[in-house]
């Protein structure tokens, strides 16, 4: 039996959030945390609410806080997160809770949109693809793979305090993804928009983002690259 403690909150019936305990029969299997949630929803309490989609770690729906650490429920095996017999599942920290494990991600998405996350190149496109060498393309590795699960930004204290002003690790990773793309020509404009005291420079190098990213990406490094680009631009 696995003891699972779930964060519960239904805005229609609950004054305040509370933790609810379930004893779940996992039959000794090393399930993923999402499987445990599916078991609880199917067999124990159908009102338990969470997001899920691909169940293989590529869609980014089920970012949750499991035993104190952010991650994707579908690719986090019990053996990795459960120490002792207890699994505590909470919503991603720092964002408003809509219900149970579902958070309002509007602020997170707004920061993503702020970096203009699309290729900008006003020159007329050729009849075939724009050419890019494998080396130039390699600059995008470790950047384009982001799945927008928000595990990083919601583990970042700077994002907790200023989610409306600090772009946060996920948004900045994407900002750099386009700065690093040899096909993008809006570098100057992009950098100009990042040079305020909040957008980039609230990053204090805490590296929680690197620690939790389920895709093994390194936003802190990308932020460092942006800072260097800003510095080079100014000098």
């Amino acid at each position: 039996m696995l003891e699972v403690s779930l964060y519960r909150y239904n805005p229609e019936t609950d004054e305040a959030p509370y933790m609810q305990d379930f004893s779940v029969d996992t039959s000794g299997r090393d399930l993923m945390v999402l499987d445990v949630l599916e078991l609880i929803k199917a067999d124990y309490d159908g009102s338990v609410t969470y997001r899920r989609s691909c169940r293989e770690g590529v869609c980014g729906s089920d970012g949750l806080n499991m035993n104190g650490k952010n991650g994707l429920a579908c690719v986090t095996p019990l053996s990795e997160t459960v120490k002792g017999e207890k699994l505590v599942i909470r919503p991603l920290p720092g964002l408003p809770v809509i219900r149970d494990l579902v958070v309002d991600m509007s602020l997170f998405y707004a920061q993503y949109e702020k970096v203009q996350p699309y290729l900008q190149n006003p020159s007329p496109a050729p009849a075939i693809e724009r050419l890019q060498s494998p080396e130039e393309r390699a600059q995008l590795d470790g950047l384009y793979e982001c799945i927008l699960c928000a595990c990083c930004s919601t583990s970042c204290p700077s994002f907790w305090w200023n989610p409306d002003r600090f772009i946060g690790p996920a948004g900045l990773l994407q900002a750099y993804r386009f700065l690093a793309d040899s096909r993008d020509t809006a570098t100057e404009e992009r950098l100009g928009k990042l040079d305020d005291p909040f957008s980039v420079f609230r990053c204090h190098g805490i590296q929680n983002c690197v620690n939790v990213c389920p895709k093994g990406l390194n936003p802190t490094k990308a932020i460092g690259h942006i800072r260097t680009m800003l510095l080079n631009r100014a000098t």
Binding site: L119, A125, E129, Q132, S133, R137, Y144, D181
Partner: peptide, 20 residues
């Protein structure tokens, strides 16, 4: 349709010639 996607920014892997 593929070239349009590339122009939109899709990060295709590349050949030595720089093509998709």
């Amino acid at each position: 349709a593929i070239f349009e996607l590339e122009h939109m920014g899709l990060p295709f892997s590349r050949t030595e010639e720089g093509r998709i």
